[in-house]
Design a protein around this nucleic acid. Structure first.
Length: 422
RNA sequence: GGAGAGAUGGCAGAGUGGUCGAAUGCACUGGUCUUGAAAACCAGCGUACAGCAAUGUACCGGGGGUUCGAAUCCCUCUCUCUCCGCCA
């Protein structure tokens, strides 16, 4: 959520930048500023009245003490009428605050000035491509055949007990999954992140804090109960919300967490959802940072390099893309995506998304720090996948299939305990 | 599932109708003292909104009510804790 004062200060540049997200915010900004003007005026009027009322109440108390009950009764009447009037103003003020809030939460984050223009993922800019496309053996297969041949994943069993998009990992396939999770967590811990194992269900306030709610409720699995619960779509939600309503005094804060992620993914179809490509439940290891505003972009680069180093070690060919305005998420100011090459299906798969949200989430979260003048200011939040499992899994087994079996990269072998799947 | 207790500032913990944004202690910040540190002493120390500022207003778990006036009384919701039962 943008801060209203920031909108006032940067209205024109924000309008220009939001065009990158294919949005015309001019009218919306005018509207919200007008409402905020009204809000201020209303508060000023209300404050004067309330102040008067407070004084009267004090006087009345004083009069009772000194036995001037008759005079007090006169003042009581005045006080009552003031109260009536101020009540109306206060109601109006709360209504205006709600209206303003309702507008603000519909406005996406402002893209960073370096964000390339574009409408879809086709317009994303490839910054770097690392590693050679592997030359596979004759008759190489996509992962959904390999997982069946080698008894790694049982998609049918998942269909039976839950539904499409909920695979069951089995045998070495389950162990490989567990190995990847441990490996990613260890890499993140080595890089200074603190490990957390958060709840996989969050309340509505948490969904709001990171920006999933209310606008994207249809993407989430909701658990009907007295207080609405949601299955987390990413560890970003519980972990970032650790810092909701917090005034931090040290930077950076670095967290990592493994969690399953649950997504409705309505409207996906075809080869997009084949095998592991898009699931309703998948595993992911996330990194989250809370940073000083002046350091956040520097940190974003460090996070990107960190993710790259993991892919290097896994010996997977990958590319780094900068997302164009049209592909940028609602809450992000700048995002780098990682795609690995999945040789069996001959396509690139997104495995990580590293973003700087600047103060957009922090404003929803009320996540602040005290600056050198002792003023509270909003922090910046960042996060990235390090990494999302299923597509890494797919690329790993596809790219490493040989006539003898599926080879496990060196970095992973201490975690799997085997170097080949036969 | 049954019974009870509670929710106050970073923490602990007073406060049961006015002088309370809130005692006191701890923590923290600045200062005095000291060769330095500790101790002691002095001072400061919540958040948000409005205002150039002085200052004003709101907030004692959330919402509503009574009252001239509510942290304090009433209603309601949420959460936490304790005991019993059940249980990985």
């Amino acid at each position: 959520m943008l801060h209203i004062n920031k909108i006032r200060e940067n209205k024109d540049s924000y309008i220009t930048l939001l065009k990158l997200k294919n949005m015309d915010a001019a009218d919306l900004f005018d509207d919200v500023i007008a409402k905020d003007d009204e809000r201020k005026a209303t508060q000023q009027k209300a404050d004067v009245l309330l102040s008067k009322g407070n004084q009267l109440a004090k006087q009345i108390g004083e009069m009772y003490k000194t036995g001037k009950a008759t005079e007090a009764n006169v003042l009581k009447k005045e006080s009552s009428s003031i109260k009536e009037e101020s009540k109306g103003l206060q109601t109006k003020q709360t209504e205006l605050e709600k209206e303003i809030q309702n507008i603000l939460i519909q406005i996406p984050n402002i893209p960073h000035p370096t964000v390339p223009p574009g409408k879809t993922d086709a317009d994303n800019v490839t910054l770097k491509e690392v590693g050679a496309i592997p030359a596979l053996i004759e008759g190489a297969k996509p992962h959904w055949e390999l997982t069946a041949d080698y008894n790694l994943i049982d998609f049918e069993l998942g269909n039976k007990i839950t539904g499409a998009g909920f695979p069951v990992y089995t045998h070495n396939g389950a162990k490989l999954q567990r190995a990847l999770i441990s490996y990613f967590l260890d890499k993140n811990i080595d890089a200074g992140y603190i490990e957390y194992l958060p709840p996989h269900i969050v309340n509505e306030a948490s969904g709001f804090g990171t920006g999933q709610l209310p606008k994207f409720e249809e993407d989430l699995y909701k658990i009907p109960s007295e207080t609405d619960f949601y299955l987390i779509p990413t560890a970003e939600v519980p972990v970032t919300n650790f810092f909701r309503d917090v005034i931090v005094n040290e930077f950076p804060i670095k967290c990592t967490a493994y969690t399953p992620c649950f997504r409705r993914e309505a409207g996906s179809y075809g080869k997009e959802v084949r095998g592991l490509n898009r699931l309703h439940q998948f595993d992911k290891v996330e990194i989250v940072q809370v940073q000083h505003p002046e350091k956040s972009y520097e940190t974003l680069d460090v996070m990107v390099n960190h993710v790259a180093s993991i892919l290097d070690e896994l010996e997977l060919p990958y590319k780094i893309l900068q997302l164009c305005g049209g592909d940028l998420s609602f809450t992000s100011a700048l995002t780098f995506d990682f795609e690995v090459y999945s040789a069996g299906q001959e396509r690139w798969l997104e495995v990580s998304s590293v973003s700087n949200f600047e103060s957009y989430q922090a404003n929803r979260l009320k996540l602040r720090f005290k600056d050198e003048n002792d003023k509270t200011q909003l922090c910046h939040t960042l996060n990235g996948s390090a990494l999302a499992l299923p597509r890494i899994y797919a690329a790993l087994i596809e790219n490493n299939q040989t006539a003898d079996g599926i080879k496990i990269p060196k970095a992973l072998q201490p975690y799997t305990g085997f170097d080949i799947i036969k």
